[in-house]
Design a protein around this nucleic acid. Structure first.
Length: 425
DNA sequence: TCTGGGGTCCTAGGACCC
DNA sequence: TCTGGGGTCCTAGGACCC
């Protein structure tokens, strides 16, 4: 059996942990630049039917009228809270697959004499007690069914956030309850096509749709889903995350930018972030890609988007080399006269550090200078982000940096921002 | 005026190898 | 004029996830 544990409206719940005055009140969390709603707690969802990913400016009235508290996203905080949850899960089973920031699969096979309902509630209660975060637990024989069980645990209050599929009757009943579009792995396109074929529920899909059709129209991915829904496990359980195949970052500017040097600065800053991730993973990149674009949504601004990929002479993870290569790429695609909204960088062709080959003319160690980068990372880990940095990354950050007007404090990572508890006289 | 960001997997088709 | 059979690697595009 596999348990799927998932935090309820995770970002909003994280904010509430440190603001108990907001418990029971509507809370939403906004995307970068405070642009869209990306998380809403139960209260916020129920009162006004706030659709996810709705631009904030369109629903500002509703938010204000209903006294909804909103936060800019604080990923540092959410990442830290996520760690706590995962660490607790690891005390329940040696096999934990962290699936996303707020979800994990827990392998229960081989743990004997398990009272599943009790085990499920223990997980739920312990996480709530230790972190303050509410979770739902779904337990079933396959990952897809565990996801489904988790959904039911969350939707139907009678189950008290724990639901178990451990018999054929329960499995079939569960499949009949869930709409095809709500099955994990069925997105908008497939849902539309299946509905045209009169497949409306997970049950219709798993028991009334021929495998041959599924295989042909939805590839092997669809076939796995079909089998998993019928109770046959075929999606692997992986406790060790695979190294990333590409690492990138792209963020909208706080305001529109026209000048190359400002975009250059943001680009260099993002490069230093991703190269740090590369080094932490012990990898080097063979290619660096830079892209820019204007506002897709604007009806007045001229539109432009372009990208450029540079092949590095020798794969590297050195911040300075990557900044200089990215800068060349940016210069190739930048055109004056546009109001740019976003710049992004991607590192790909990722290989382990130890496998980097020299070419006839270059020594990898001379280019990558691992000794310098180690010192560089060491200082930043000890004294805080960007204590030492390439000068190009920070001259006029306020000109392009994201807008985060409503960010909560870094309660768990900054001494100055710790939660204060006490009474005022 | 204001609209997120970071990923994965699969397939088909083209270029290439012996 | 006739022109095989077995592969690999890479990329673009489409679908999906949170």
């Amino acid at each position: 059996m596999i348990a799927m544990v998932d935090c309820n409206s995770f970002y909003a719940s994280c904010e509430q942990v440190f603001r108990p005055d907001l418990l029971g009140k509507p809370v939403v969390v906004l995307s970068n630049n405070d642009g869209c709603v990306i998380a809403a707690n139960k209260e916020a969802k129920s009162l006004a039917h706030i659709p996810m990913f709705e631009p904030v400016f369109k629903i500002k009235d509703i938010l204000e009228k209903n006294n909804v508290t909103f936060f800019s996203s604080n990923y540092t905080l959410y990442g830290e809270m996520s760690q706590r949850v995962m660490n607790i899960l690891k005390t329940f089973s040696p096999m934990v697959e962290v699936y996303s920031i707020d979800e994990a699969f827990v392998e229960l096979t081989g743990i004997n004499h398990l009272d599943l309902p009790k085990y499920g509630s223990n997980i739920k209660e312990q996480i709530l007690r230790y972190t303050g975060l509410p979770v739902g637990v779904g337990i079933a024989p396959t990952k897809v069914l565990a996801k489904l069980a988790n959904r039911i645990a969350k939707k139907e209050e009678v189950h008290d956030h724990v639901y178990i599929i451990d018999s054929e009757e329960k499995r079939k009943a569960a499949l009949k309850k869930v709409k095809i579009g709500d099955v994990w792995g069925i997105g908008r396109q497939h849902a539309r096509r299946l509905q045209e074929k009169k497949v409306f529920t997970a049950f219709d899909f798993a028991h009334n749709t021929p495998l041959a059709w599924v295989r042909k129209e939805m590839t092997v991915v669809g076939e796995r889903l079909w089998r998993e829904l019928r109770g046959e496990s075929c999606i692997e359980f992986t406790t060790i995350p695979k190294p990333k195949k590409g690492i990138g970052t792209a963020k909208s500017f706080g305001k529109r930018l026209e000048d190359l040097d400002m975009i250059e600065e943001a680009c260099a800053y993002y490069i230093s972030e991703v190269s740090e991730v590369m080094r932490a993973q012990g990898s080097c990149a063979s290619y660096v890609q830079v892209f820019v674009h204007t506002n897709y949504h604007s009806k007045i601004d001229k539109r432009y988007s372009e990208s450029c990929t540079v092949t590095l002479p020798v794969p590297t993870n050195n911040t300075f080399v990557l900044i200089s290569e990215a800068r060349k790429a940016l210069h190739r695609i930048y055109k004056p006269g546009f109001r740019y909204k976003k710049v992004g960088v991607n590192l790909s062709g990722i290989i382990p550090q130890e496998y980097v080959q020299a070419n006839l003319f270059e020594q990898p160690s001379k280019i990558s200078n691992p000794v310098l980068m180690k010192v560089f990372d060491g200082i930043n880990n000890k004294y805080g982000k960007a204590t030492v940095a390439s000068a190009i990354t920070g001259r006029r950050k306020q000109e392009w940096e994201l807008i985060k007007k409503h960010r909560s404090p870094y309660y768990t990572t900054q001494w100055q921002e710790l939660l204060k508890v006490g009474s005022r006289s």
